[in-house]
Simulated scan of single mutants.
Amino acid sequence: RIIQEVRKKGDEAVRSFTKQFDGVLIEQPLVTEDEMEKAYERLDIEMVQIIRTAIKHIRTYHERQLTSSWFYHQKDGSMLGQKVTPLDAVGVYVPGGTAAYPSSVLMNVIPALVAGVERIVLVTPPGKDGRLSDAVLVAAKELGISEMYKMGGAQAVAAVAYGTESIQPVDKI
């Protein structure tokens, strides 16, 4: 039912379900640059450094997993091989509320960045105050995420899967 409502009513359905399930009405779900910058002011500098160190380690690990395209020609003129290309756009769901972990951002976004995905859309549910976790915001900002929405649950997954008036769909979640 949630998926069908989001497909039919788009942003209106997402707002309604966010109010119902998360207890907050979010008029503008797109996270602003200002919201991300203010998260740095509230988050302990030590946590920012921990996030930055984790990014380096996780990126190094995933860079070792990269596979390359390869091709070869047979004597009969046929060409065989493998072409590796990244998806154009992926959605990343980050749990919110009491389970708001910046590690969820890092462990899902970094592999997509290393693979060369151009557009990464992050969705995470807001707290009752309408805000997101400062650590999640900082982790996303450190990774260059510019498209992040305050929404969670099935409505968020449906919004990025099928698109709404304000969100273009992705290739994979």
Results as ranks from 00 to 15, higher is better:
36 M>E: 09
41 E>I: 15
95 P>G: 01
67 T>C: 14
47 M>C: 12
42 R>G: 09
112 A>T: 05
125 P>V: 01
56 K>R: 15
76 D>Q: 06
103 S>L: 03
118 E>M: 11
74 Q>C: 11
29 P>L: 08
5 E>Q: 13
22 D>P: 15
149 Y>M: 00
124 T>R: 08
2 I>A: 13
99 A>H: 02
11 D>H: 06
159 A>S: 07
149 Y>W: 03
150 K>Y: 02
171 D>E: 01
159 A>H: 04
151 M>H: 07
78 S>D: 08
94 V>M: 04
5 E>D: 13
58 I>L: 02
163 G>F: 02
41 E>L: 15
51 I>S: 10
163 G>Q: 00
38 K>W: 11
148 M>E: 00
87 L>D: 03
139 A>C: 14
133 S>Q: 08
131 R>S: 14
135 A>K: 12
97 G>E: 00
136 V>Q: 08
154 A>E: 01
165 E>V: 03
49 Q>K: 14
31 V>H: 05
94 V>I: 11
139 A>F: 10
19 K>M: 10
68 S>M: 01
7 R>P: 06
120 I>Y: 00
29 P>F: 04
71 F>D: 15
170 V>T: 04
2 I>M: 13
121 V>N: 02
61 Y>H: 12
162 Y>T: 08
108 N>Q: 06
144 G>T: 01
21 F>C: 07
161 A>T: 12
137 L>E: 04
37 E>L: 15
154 A>Y: 05
157 V>L: 10
119 R>H: 11
133 S>K: 04
131 R>M: 10
116 G>D: 08
81 G>Y: 03
118 E>P: 11
4 Q>I: 13
66 L>S: 09
83 K>E: 10
77 G>W: 05
109 V>F: 07
62 H>C: 00
115 A>Q: 06
146 S>Q: 15
